[in-house]
Amino acid sequence: MTAVQIERPPAMTASRLSKSYGDHRVLSDVDVAIRRGETLAVVGPSGSGKSTLCRTLVGLEEFDRGEIELDGQWIARRDGPRERLSRCGDYRRRRLAMGMVFQHYTLFPQLTVLQNVTLAPRRVLGVDKREAVERAMEVLERVGLGDKAGSFPQHLSGGQQQRAAIARELAMRRNILFFDEATSALDPELVSEVLHVVEELTSSGLTLVIVSHEMGFVRRAADRVVFMDAGRIVEVAEPEAFFEDPQEERSRTFLAKMAA
């Protein structure tokens, strides 16, 4: 980390973030600061709240208590389950800084790859058609799909679909990209081509938050690892430290299970 990066506010922070479904607490006082430009991996057993955390941060889900900041300014806060959740006035514009790649059903099946990538830049950002197409071709080249621009999603492999979904986010010029188990639904042989693209992004200045079960990838590509269990953040560490010398009992149990 260079000095400059430490002085600037984190890309995103969550403070005391809590959320329950009935009696079931899915997020318990989660505090996390996502540093600008870092690659943050979120790992943990299934049902530990990793996906919920990401979905809450990008605004797809509400929460019961806590505050979310983007670039040092609050965008959503709630004082408790009885209070209203308030979002900042220009929330719709601010949230455009955050992108997300889902596990499946990501591309719009009735549109070509190119149309998938140009839709939001044109309709939301108001980019004119020629520039949108240029931008799209650029990002499609970047994920190795320059020749698939005219194809429909159902004619692409799962890996190609996920790469196209990444390109679509890149075309929106996001600051932060969330990957919510973006490779979990893929056949094993297709995982690496997607991870390869993600790995390339780690050095691009983009802030990446990656929920993943691919431990080898996490170790290789992440700057920090957040370990979650039962809706809480149990441990935050650099990958080497986390995998070699986990500090918490629950981390050790989880890693032992993943290794088995």
């Binding site: 797809l60 949230r95 719009f108 549109l111 939001a120 309709r123 950002l125 929106m172």
Partner: peptide, 20 residues
């Protein structure tokens, strides 16, 4: 996921209905 993706992309409710 289709609707959520459209939401993340910033499409308004009317645009989500129309395009997705």
């Amino acid at each position: 996921e289709q609707v959520e993706t459209a939401e993340i992309l910033g499409l308004s409710y009317a645009q989500r209905m129309r395009f997705v």
